[in-house]
Design a binder for these strands. Structure first.
Lengths: 111, 111
DNA sequence: CAGAATCCAGTCGGATACTG
DNA sequence: CAGTATCCGACTGGATTCTG
């Protein structure tokens, strides 16, 4: 299951669905700028398969498909969100660590 | 930073370092059966670069290198562990969701 | 012991074109 | 609108070999 958490697009999808209750395919596509429609399709199918997202098709023309989090998906979203929150709070520390590491690496090369 | 959380080997490394305080390269390698020495090297260097892991080299022959979590790394580990805990608690639900999805998918094909 | 370097097969994901 | 299908370049990570 950690695969899904480790997947960039899955996380972003879940986060957006967490703030919007229900979203159509194209709405999600617009929210997640940069995602290809192929990856959105694949990601949503995987999330649906795992029981995190519910997909409802309204049989009209043109097609109308809604996505929303299941209770399980909402629970996952809470966890993911708090992890993202933590990541956000400490990203500055990581940035500094990287800078100092890279600086040391440069030193080691020149010596 | 979510890259690191999403990386399978990073998560496993962090978890092991969370229960062992300090580990040598080969000890980690043995604990994480299945990892190649290349990926262990790469993973540890990335974790060190991000400031999650401290690497201490004792200049003896043969080499003796120790890895341990930094305070930042320990904080990350707590988060990761609770997420893994959640994942574990709900993996059965996911398994069922997948089964029912796959069953439905088969139906749809045959109809 | 703890890596570094190289090679290479497999996978991922973007771009594009087509459809009910 | 909401996909599916195909092609293909890029990156990933394992296996292997070599080193202080």
């Amino acid at each position: 299951m950690l695969d899904r958490i480790g997947d960039r697009w899955s996380v972003i999808c879940i986060l957006h669905l967490g703030e919007h209750e229900v979203l159509r395919f194209t709405e999600l596509r617009r929210l997640i700028s940069g995602i290809s429609q192929r990856m959105l399709t694949v990601t949503l199918r995987d999330l649906e398969r795992d029981g995190f997202v519910a997909r409802k098709v309204k049989p009209v023309i043109p097609p109308h498909v809604e996505y929303r989090l299941t209770p399980l998906g909402r629970a996952l979203m809470e966890n993911v969100r708090s992890l993202c929150q933590w990541a956000n709070d400490h990203q500055e520390a990581v940035r500094r660590a990287r800078e100092s590491y890279d600086a040391r690496a440069l030193q080691d090369v020149s010596s």
